[in-house]
């Protein structure tokens, strides 16, 4: 048996685990964006009662490791009687759902910073011009602010999706058999950890690499259609 055999033999099982990794990441990003929009609205609202908790939420999530957040949800919250006796208990008992919750909450905090940055990056003059044209607040947002903010947000959000794909590996610590979890299982079976983890690394590189390339193309297309109207 050559050194490369375990490396090649690891690929079929690892590739079978890719859909779970992709599924976790995409679901988390979609849920995360929805939460992030609400957080951004709260942070940019006039009321301190909304602004303050939203700020604290973002600060706590960005200031602590995702790994710790996952264990807090999976082991910590699951211990509370309020959770155990609630309708949510079947969800909190399920490791997949806990991982998804941790990932979604995590990305929502980073996402809200990206959205806020994008909106605040739109030049003041643009909004003033829209006001001068007597556009309604909804028109102002959908026609002036949002298209420009989107162009600025896109690269940052693409990067966030890449980070999420990488972050799904942490789900393996609560026994979810996505790519990293599968790699660990094969490694302990074959006693060839180096080969197996390198194979897993190549799969992650293919995923994150193609995603980065896709975002790059999308970004180019957006710039072409709208001109370079990103204001600084």
């Amino acid at each position: 048996m050559s050194w490369w055999d375990p490396f090649i033999e690891a690929f079929p099982s690892l590739i079978k685990a890719v859909p779970l990794t992709v599924m976790l990441a995409t679901t988390a990003v979609v849920i995360g964006i929805v939460i992030a929009i609400f957080i951004t609205l709260a942070r940019m609202s006039g009321s301190a009662f909304l602004r303050w908790p939203a700020y604290a939420y973002v600060y706590v999530i960005r200031g602590t490791p995702l790994f710790l957040q996952l264990f807090f949800i999976y082991y910590g919250l699951a211990q509370l009687d309020i959770i155990r006796h609630s309708m949510l208990w079947p969800l909190f008992r399920d490791e997949y759902w806990c991982a998804l919750l941790a990932l979604s909450l995590n990305t929502s905090a980073y996402g809200s910073e990206i959205i806020r940055g994008g909106i605040q990056g739109v030049a003041k003059g643009q909004v003033e011009a829209a006001l001068a044209f007597a556009l309604s607040p909804v028109q102002r947002f959908t026609r002036i602010v949002f298209p420009q903010a989107l162009r600025q947000m896109l690269p940052a959000y693409g990067n966030e999706v890449v980070l999420m794909i990488k972050a799904t590996s942490i789900a393996s610590t609560v026994t979810i058999m996505e790519v990293t979890g599968t790699a660990r299982a094969i490694a302990s079976e074959t006693y060839a950890p180096v080969q197996v983890f390198i194979a897993a690394g190549i799969i992650y590189l293919a995923l994150t690499g193609s995603l980065t390339y896709g975002v790059h193309c999308l970004e180019k297309a957006l710039h072409r259609r709208g001109g370079l109207a990103v204001a600084r």
């Binding site: 590996s169 950890p193 992650y204 994150t208 690499g209």
Partner: peptide
Amino acid sequence: TTVVRGVPELLIIYLLFFG
């Protein structure tokens, strides 16, 4: 820089620790 930033940190830790 491309490889390390494109691969989960956990995987790098496993690779170094077990390998």
